[in-house]
Amino acid sequence: MKWISPFAMNRLGLLNMNRRNVDYILRYNERQAYPLVDNKLKTKLIATEYDVNTPELLQVVRQQHEISHFRERVEQLEGFAIKPSKGSGGKGIMVILRREEEDYIKASGVAVSLSTLERHLSNILAGLYSLGGAPDVAIIESLVNSDPRLAKYSFQGVPDIRIVVFQGYPVMAMLRLATKDSDGKANLHQGAVGVGLNIANGRCLNAVQFNRPIILHPDTGTPLNSIEIDGWEQMLIMASRCYEATGLGYMGVDLVVDAERGPLLLELNARPGLAIQMANGRGLLPRLKHVEGLERPHSSPEKRAHYAMANFGVAQP
C-alpha cells in the first residue's frame, strides 16, 4: 500500500471526504433542495424554467393505466430512453436505439419486445429502482446523439462533462469517457477515464484511469491531450445557472453535448465525488476558499462564469 503524506495533501489543496461533508455539503446545501436533484423530473422542469436545456421530455408515465398511452406514443418514436425519476447511479435506465419490425433494439444490441418495455415501466412505477422502494414515475426522453467530436474519444456510452459549481461559480470540470473496463458506464471508480478540463478554455489538463495518469484512451487509442470542448463558455454559464435554479451551494452538474441541440443538462448531484481532483491533478480547496473569500459575489451566471474562467484557469503551454 502506498501513502501520501497529509502535508503533501495540504500543499495540493485536496478536499477530503469529511471536510466536504461538514464544511460544504452540510453548510451550503439546504436539505429541502435535495428533492430537486434527486428527482430527475423535477430537475428537468426547474432547469427548463432557467433556460437550461435538457434532453427532450417525450412522456411521463405516472400511473399504471398510463402505460397504454405509452403504447400509442411509442409507435411514432424511433429511439428513446426510459428512466426512473428517482433512480440513482444509472439504475433502471433503458436506452432504445431503434426499432426493427416489432422489436426494440437496446444500446447493447439486444432486441426486446413491447411487453418487456411495459413491464419495465410498471417496475419503475412500483419503485423497484428508487431509493428505499418509494413509488416512482417513469420519464421517457429523446435520445442524446453525442457530438461526434466527443464521441470518438469514448468506448461506447455517451461522454459526459461534470462541472463542480460552488456558490454559482464553476470551480472545476472533467470529462468522463466510458471504457471497456467500465462497461460503458462513466463512473471513475468502475474504470472510466477522467479528463480534467481547464476552466479557462475547456482544454485537456490531465487524464487518469484508475487514478493513474494516462495519455491515450485505453480502448480507442485516441490521444486525450488534444481534447478541447467547443462552446465551453456556454457550458459554464449553463452550469452556473443551475445554482439559481436549485439554490444548492455545492453541487455537481452533469452535461452532455448533443450533435444538434448542443450542451444538455443530464442531471444534478448534491454530493459530487472527490475524484474530479485526481482527473485535474490539483485540489479543490484553494478555489473553494477563493469563492468563499469573495467580498461581493457576482449576481449573474454570465459574470460568475467569466470570473471563473479568468481566475481558475491553468496556464498551459
Binding site: 501520501i4 497529509p6 500543499r11 495540493l12 477530503n16 461538514v22 490531465n206 485526481m278 490539483r282
Partner: peptide, 20 residues
C-alpha cells in the same frame, strides 16, 4: 465536526503525489 483526513484517504489519494 472532524474535517481532517481519513487514514484511508492518505492511501486513496497517493497517486496525487506526482502532481506535488
Amino acid at each position: 465536526q472532524y474535517t481532517g483526513y481519513k487514514l484511508t484517504e492518505l492511501s486513496r489519494f497517493h497517486p496525487m503525489k506526482v502532481y506535488d
